[in-house]
Design a protein around this nucleic acid. Sequence first.
DNA 1: ATAGTTGCAAAAGCTTTGCAGTATG
DNA 2: CATACTGCAAAGCTTTTGCAACTAT
Lengths: 159, 159
Amino acid sequence: MSVSTPEHIKEIKEIFAAHLEQNKQRKTPERFAILEEIYMRTDHFDAETLYIEMKNKNFNVSRATVYNTLELLESCGLVVRHQFGDNQSRYEKSYNRRQHDHLICEECKEVKEFCDSRVFQIETKIGELLKHKISHHSLILYGACEDVDCANRQKMTKN
Amino acid sequence: MSVSTPEHIKEIKEIFAAHLEQNKQRKTPERFAILEEIYMRTDHFDAETLYIEMKNKNFNVSRATVYNTLELLESCGLVVRHQFGDNQSRYEKSYNRRQHDHLICEECKEVKEFCDSRVFQIETKIGELLKHKISHHSLILYGACEDVDCANRQKMTKN
DNA sequence: ATAGTTGCAAAAGCTTTGCAGTATG
DNA sequence: CATACTGCAAAGCTTTTGCAACTAT
């Protein structure tokens, strides 16, 4: 996942602003600060991490506002929410990003992204078969890195 | 998902007993009662539901034992754990069952099962591409029933 | 001015843990 | 009879909610 440029962030803020106007919701500084923080990130973060890191940057937001804004951003498609198997939601920015799925190393917890068009063939076929209109999917592969850095990352993850 | 017959359950208990012996763990009545309760079910249940229903049947188990036993059963392959997008674990029996994935109706929350071999093609290809040894996957399709009973089920789900 | 939002703290929901008592091997 | 396991209650985490104060429109 790549870093967003300042121009990119400006564009995204405009999209968010338009969405808020359309729904008669207010354009508060907190909402835009959270959006910006999210688009500065390149990882798959949880709500608490986002909250803590904003606090660390001396931006005073509450957890309630973080959760509220994440939901808003999700509903307007600027953020996607995932469940990586640990009873906690993880989020990532999604504007201008190709749909993709995730591979998680069970040892070092690293998240990698991939695309495979066969998943859409499955959506189509199973949707027809089971008579459902499929709106989206979640595909997660779990595995083990064949990677020298895996052990190092493991140490960092254990806390 | 079909109901397990008494003979079937007997066989599964033997497997569990063997597994416990191998790992020098004790064959307690609670563990077998929980196993039996699970194999009587045909749904995708959460730990609390299992706990409550055992209480209702006047079988006195604790939550701690339910969670502990679910973990044991998962590690010996008699139960699989899923995350259907709501920050809560769901379980289902897995002995003698073909590997399958899930389709969830976002309106009535009904869970349907399906098989599509293309997932394994994805596993193989992406495993090679990203140099990971894939151990398992989770694929969930989210959609909407095109189904007359969907609305009825929705009413029952809202609580 | 008015009603949508915020921050805070409390509550809620799922899961884990500590511990004293119990029962398996 | 040693120690793994159980039940209970408390604690831990993530997420949601209620409400008074605030602020965008």
